[in-house]
């Protein structure tokens, strides 16, 4: 019973945590918080919390042993990797051009990639859940 309940609890807690922390990060970004270069650590806290919650969600799914789920997970990680390369490259090029996009700066990093991986994976599973 615990084997079934634990992954599900992990996933639920993780998803709630990541949604709330991500919302908080974006609210702060759009309010132009920390534009004067101070108090940026406040932004850092939910961002790191978000990262921890992503690990919760991913580790919950890792506990499920199923060949199709493993395939979906791998595909989601591959897509996340491509997205990561695109974001990092855009960020690098824009930086070279002397442009500083605040949003892109926030997206640059492993957290956003992890979010994409988890959401795309969950979406694929949900799609299969509702078809019978």
């Amino acid at each position: 019973m615990m084997k079934l309940l634990l992954p599900s609890a992990f996933r639920t807690i993780g998803l709630i945590m990541c949604a709330s922390s991500l919302l908080y990060v974006f609210v702060l970004i759009f309010m132009n918080f920390g534009s004067d270069g101070t108090n940026l650590w406040i932004l850092e806290i939910p961002w790191q919390l978000f990262m921890v919650s992503m690990v919760f969600v991913i580790s919950a799914r890792r506990r499920v042993e199923d060949e199709m789920i493993a395939t979906l997970r791998l595909a989601a990680f591959q897509r996340g990797l491509y997205l990561g390369v695109i974001i990092s490259f855009s960020y690098f090029v824009l930086n070279l051009m002397g442009l500083d996009f605040r949003l892109l700066k926030a997206l640059h990093g492993i957290n956003f990639i992890l979010l994409y991986v988890v959401l795309s994976f969950e979406y694929q599973l949900r799609k299969l859940n509702h078809e019978e």
């Binding site: 499920v64 199923d66 060949e67 199709m68 789920i69 395939t71 599973l125 299969l128 859940n129 078809e131 019978e132």
Partner: peptide, 21 residues
Amino acid sequence: GVSRQTINAIEKNKYVPSTVL
């Protein structure tokens, strides 16, 4: 010994199962 989603995906031709499965 697989998930219900796996059976569903195979039935809908969205996933080709392994030889073992």
